[in-house]
């Protein structure tokens, strides 16, 4: 059965959980990618996605259809993930050694030195991302992970395309400075 977004949203606004399931199936991976992009930890990303869809079910009545639905959902996902990071910073106890730590790309390369490098890079990237202002981090994640266009990012974040370009530029510049030694390494 085809996914008719307007119809599904309308049913969900009336409290239909099956409609929420249809929205979940449509957007689960996208929301997860945003969440993971911010927190860089599977368990946290899992919790954030759950929280986002529970929030969505309670607040979807407020969605008036003036903007695209995905911008509404992505904004909610990003704000929930950023809030989660703020809470984590206050009760910092996570360690990269514990289970569920950031996953290196060991699916792609199986060489031990490559795995170690990816793990170190991921750790440093996580630290570097945390040093970015929230709006730069959100813009980078929308662009690099979700692959949204400048126009789509501007709509989602409620800013101009110029602001999006500026945030991307300064975000990338800052990451390059923070990761310059790690990114230059070749295999």
């Amino acid at each position: 059965m085809a996914y008719d977004e307007a119809e599904v949203i309308s049913r969900c606004q009336q409290g239909d959980q099956e409609a929420l399931r249809a929205i979940f199936e449509q957007y689960q991976k996208k929301v997860y990618r945003i969440a993971y992009g911010v927190v860089r930890r599977r368990e946290d990303a899992h919790d954030i996605v759950q929280e986002v869809f529970i929030k969505l079910f309670r607040s979807i009545k407020n969605f008036r259809g003036k903007s695209q639905f995905y911008t509404y959902l992505y904004r909610m996902a990003m704000n929930t993930a950023l809030d989660h990071v703020r809470k984590m910073k206050r009760t910092r106890s996570s360690s990269l050694d514990e289970e569920g730590s950031p996953q290196p790309a060991d699916e792609i390369e199986n060489r031990p030195d490559q795995i170690l490098y990816q793990k170190e890079l991921e750790e440093k990237l996580k630290e570097a991302l945390e040093k970015l202002p929230s709006d730069q981090k959100a813009t980078l994640i929308f662009r690099e992970i979700e692959e949204l266009s400048y126009q789509e990012i501007a709509e989602t974040m409620g800013c101009s395309i110029g602001t999006v370009m500026s945030r991307l530029h300064y975000g990338r510049k800052k990451l390059q400075e923070l990761l310059k030694d790690d990114l230059k390494r070749d295999f």
Partner: peptide, 9 residues
């Protein structure tokens, strides 16, 4: 670096 671990997760 940003994207690869996300795809894996």
């Amino acid at each position: 670096a940003i994207k690869q671990p996300v795809d894996g997760a």
